[in-house]
Write a protein that binds this DNA or RNA. Sequence first.
DNA 1: ACGAGCGCCTGTCGGC
DNA 2: TGCCGACAGGCGCTCG
Length: 273
Amino acid sequence: MPELPEVETISRFLKEGNSQQSSVLGRTIQRVDLLWERSVAEPAAAEFLVRLPGQTIAGIGRRGKYLRLDLSEDVLLFHLRMSGDLLVEPVDAPIGPHYRLLLYLDQNLRLAFHDTRKFGRVWLTQDPQHVFQNLGPEPLNPELTAADFYARLQRHHRQLKPLLMDQSFLAGLGNIYTDEALHMARLHPLAISDKLTEEQAARLLAAIRKALSEGIRRNGTSIDWVYRGGDYQRYLQVYQRTGEPCKTCGTPIERIIVGQRSTHFCPNCQPLP
DNA sequence: ACGAGCGCCTGTCGGC
DNA sequence: TGCCGACAGGCGCTCG
């Protein structure tokens, strides 16, 4: 499910609450239920379970696609991968078949890690930097300039689609927002990174930022049964629109496989150089 | 340095 | 209706 905008949305909901759910900021973990051991990346499950109770959630944030909970002693990181989600519920809400980790909090609240496909992972660590060590820059950080971005593109000889999805190049893009950003920038997904002009690189960075910030503004993208609440899917230009007319020029959207991932683009708006 | 293939998992959908 | 393959917001690992 979640790319940067969905993780950012979940992070904000956990921090600020909304009409459906309370904030978990300031809540203390009282009891932990681990329903799928392999969801824990580190430490070993036994240590994970004894270290959590008694810790208070003092801060909530995001780095790339990682969600970060700063606890009183440790840092708890979630990576939601394909199907993960975090839910704030009353302690007596029913527990469905895809719950993997339950953190029982004070005020009769429960923070639930829900993950149908079991790809998601959780880390409890005092050193989040070692988990983040291979992550590239945050695309929305203004310290990343167009000149920097152009220089980074020049350093690689790679197809744009897999390069943009490489989290060590840029942290946060996934399949949806990469396809949308490339269409917005009028660049072919197979264009080669070190062949871009400075103008094209600047356009690409601006498009990435526009797609991500629009995604955040719409609370993310909700497709199928995974992740509810956002409505950026109503504004998608190419993703999962194979054969439908391009909203800019009317040409049918094409789908190809790049790096084992479905890739959607308009052959007219995004010509291969 | 790159890209391809595969594994990890469960669920949905379309074709026959 | 039932079965079977394709496919799904990700990523780490091998192997050329």
